[in-house]
């Protein structure tokens, strides 16, 4: 976890210009890791090359119930 916190702190500084305390970097590493893991897992089960974000609006329209 210390490695991930260090990576997050470095990324925040290098890519976004944000300076994080070690404690805050550790919190964010845990949060980002959890969210990334959840989305990656769900994506692996469901997504394919042709999935387009705009399909969502079309789905709502197609499923409309008056």
């Amino acid at each position: 976890m210390e490695d991930k916190a260090g990576l997050i702190a470095d990324m925040a500084d290098a890519l976004q210009g944000i300076r994080l305390t070690p404690a805050r970097a550790a919190d964010l590493a845990a949060e980002v890791g959890r969210l990334n893991g959840a989305v990656r897992g769900a994506a692996a089960d469901r997504l394919s090359f042709d999935d387009d974000p705009a399909a969502y609006a079309a789905l709502l329209a197609r499923s409309a119930t008056p």
Partner: peptide, 24 residues
């Protein structure tokens, strides 16, 4: 909001793409 600066763009886009599947 801070975590939003550190989540890769690919995960954000995948979360948007997943929305269709979750809803369906």
């Amino acid at each position: 909001m801070e975590a939003g600066f550190l989540i890769p763009a690919t995960q954000y886009i995948d979360a948007l793409r997943l929305r269709t599947h979750h809803t369906q």
